[in-house]
């Protein structure tokens, strides 16, 4: 597709996409190449050695294994949250923007409500209420359901701008009902935009998970990048200079988020010619 070719011309996109795909690859097939063990294999906070290149955690577990597991969890939550948030946001945005009028006003009010009430507060409250049974999926769902406002706004703006375009009026004149118009005429147009929004939601989902896990409200049955950081903080590894307790996880999170951000910015540069200079 011509779009893809243009994207590939942008160095930002290539760098971002490669980094992200690499991490995805490592997360998916890494366990096939590296034996993951969560058993105790060393002493508390053993320094890195040739065999276990990232050292041990507080309970003597191999950090490389933990990171791999954590990466998978975080990516999973990020995707789940991203999908949910983008879906909700797009549906609300596209419908409100297209219909306009009272429907739009109501949807706008609801969106604004969610915008102004800080999502992390809601996140904390919900997570805190589940003092047991917090799983990755639950966290992903909660994050998705509280962070959709951004995509709702963005999509609504696009949808509202589109609805006055001629081919939409033509479709309406032809008697297409709203759903059909939305699906067949508007959605393909804004698809690239929705995709961009999705990327940002995934990245925000990964960050939210890391944040919420870091303060202790994360998943209770699995390892995630955030829980690794939580442990590092709780055991005071931060102050003791035990860098392998938190630097690797930090680096991974930052890399992923940065890669996604690069992808998004480069896409914006390609889709929005006004920023091209």
């Amino acid at each position: 597709m011509k779009l893809l070719k243009n994207l590939l011309k942008s160095p930002m996109f290539v760098i971002g996409a490669s980094i992200f795909l690499l991490t995805l690859l490592i997360a998916l097939v890494g366990p096939l190449f590296y034996k993951i063990t969560t058993a105790r294999v060393g002493a508390q906070y053993d320094a890195p050695t040739a065999k276990f290149i990232l050292g041990m955690d507080d309970l003597g577990r191999d950090y490389v294994s933990l990171l791999l597991l954590g990466l998978r969890s975080s990516l999973f939550v990020g995707f789940l949250a991203g999908v949910i948030a983008t879906t909700i946001g797009t549906l609300i945005g596209i419908y409100g923007g297209f219909r306009g009028g009272v429907v739009d006003d109501i949807l706008n009010m609801v969106t604004n409500l969610f915008v102004v009430i800080p999502s992390f507060v809601v996140l904390i409250l919900i997570s805190a209420s589940f003092s047991e049974g917090r799983s990755l999926t639950l966290i992903g769902v909660i994050i998705g359901m509280t962070t959709w406002t951004w995509s709702a706004r963005a999509v609504r703006a696009q949808s509202a701008a589109l609805k006055s375009k001629d081919h939409i009026s033509l479709a309406k004149l032809n008697g297409d009902n709203t759903l059909r118009v939305l699906l067949v005429h508007i959605l393909p147009y804004i698809f690239s935009y929705v995709f961009m929004v999705f990327i940002l939601q995934v990245s925000s989902g990964i960050l939210s998970e890391a944040a919420i896990s870091m303060i202790g409200l994360g998943p209770m049955d699995t390892v995630s990048l955030g829980t690794i950081l939580n442990q590092a903080k709780n055991t005071g590894a931060l102050g003791d200079g035990i860098w392998w307790a938190f630097i690797p996880a930090t680096v991974v999170i930052t890399l992923i988020v940065f890669a996604l951000y690069l992808i998004n910015t480069s896409m914006e540069g390609v889709f929005n010619p006004r920023l091209r200079k």
């Binding site: 960050l207 890391a210 944040a211 870091m214 950081l229 931060l238 938190f246 930090t250 999170i253 930052t254 988020v257 940065f258 951000y261």
Partner: peptide, 9 residues
Amino acid sequence: SFPFFVFGM
């Protein structure tokens, strides 16, 4: 693009 807590750490 640094998350706040990452940068803090």
